[in-house]
Simulated scan of single mutants.
Amino acid sequence: MRSSRQFMGVLALLTVVLALAGCAIQPGNVEPTLAPAADVSGLAQDMQGMMAGMQGMMQNLQGTPMSPEVMAQMQGMMAGMQGMMGDLQNVPMSPEMMQQMQGMMGNMQGMMAQMHATGTPMPMPGMGMMMGNAPQVPAGLAYSEGQAIRFIHTEASDPDIAQRLSDMMGSPVLVVPSLAEVPASALAPVYVFTNGVAGMGPLGFQPDVFPFPPGAAEYTPLRTLHLVTWTDPAAAVELKSAADVQAAIAAGQLTEEVPGVVVNMPFVAWAGGNR
C-alpha cells in the first residue's frame, strides 16, 4: 500500500475522532456555566500531548512507506485517544476547553483538506459517512506466508464470535448461520491463538495466521476457525505462517480445535497487493 494512502488514512481516522469530539462539545450539548475544568484537565493534557505527538509523526512519515505493524501501533494510539474522548463526553467542560478542542479539530481538518487537494485517496473507516461515500470496515492485522497482512471481518456463522469480533473492531459483524453450511471446498482455515504471546488477536494473543493469501489457487475469504493452544505457554513464540503452525501442531507444541465456525474474512492488503 502506498505511503501517501497510509498517511491519509491515519489523518482521516484522527479527524473522525476529532469530529466526534466536536459534536460532543458543541455548546448545545453541554452547560458552560458548570465549567468544572479541573475534572477533565488531566485527560485533556494527556490527549493534547498524544495529538501533538501524532501530528509530528504524521509530518515525519510523509513519503515514507509504513508497514502494517506501524499502522497498527498508530491505530492503537488513536484508539486510546478515542477512549479519552468517550470519557470527556459526559463531563461538563469550560468554554475555554471547548474552544481549545474545537481549534485542534479545525487544525486537523485543515491539514486533511490541504492533503486532499493533492488528490490523495482516503480509504479509511468512517470517512465514507463524513464524505458522502460508502463507509469501510476497520481492518485487522494478521500474518500469511510470513508477511503481515490486513483483513476485515464482515459476517460470522456463530453469534458469540460475531459479537466478540464486533466489540474488538468497533464495527458490526453480522450473524449468518448458513455460512456453517458452506461446502468444505469453498473454505480455508485461519489459525486463532488461545494463549501464548500477547497481541492483537481476537482472544488477546498473537495475530491470526492465514494460509492461502490472494494469488494462491486455494484463496477464499470464507475461513473456518482453527483454535490453536500452546501446550506450554511459557515456550510460546510468535508464528507467522501456516507451515510454522502446522509444524508446531505436528510436534505436539500446539493443540488444535475446530469448532465449526465460519467467518467471512477477505484480505484488504497483502504482500504485493491491496484492494
Rank of each mutant, 00 (worst) to 15 (best):
L13R: 14
L174T: 13
T224W: 06
A37D: 14
E218D: 11
A113F: 00
M50V: 14
V16E: 13
P259N: 01
F151G: 04
M81F: 10
S178H: 11
L61Y: 10
P125H: 07
D167G: 01
V245Y: 09
M81D: 04
A134G: 01
P172M: 08
M57S: 14
F193K: 08
A248I: 00
A134V: 12
L239P: 07
P65D: 03
S67R: 07
N60C: 11
G196A: 12
V10C: 13
G252C: 08
Q163L: 15
V40P: 00
A180G: 09
P32G: 13
P259S: 01
A134Y: 00
N274K: 08
M112N: 02
A188P: 05
W270P: 02
V268A: 10
Y219C: 06
A44P: 04
M57W: 10
F7D: 01
M129L: 11
A242R: 02
G252T: 05
P221G: 04
E181P: 00
Q75W: 05
M169Y: 15
A242T: 00
R5F: 10
G260L: 09
V192A: 10
G252Y: 10
A243S: 11
P214I: 03
V228H: 02
G146V: 02
A184N: 08
F212I: 00
T120Q: 13
M168F: 09
S41C: 09
S67Q: 09
N195Q: 05
K240F: 01
G204V: 05
T224L: 05
V173K: 09
H116Y: 00
A234V: 12
Q109K: 08
G272S: 03
G146Q: 02
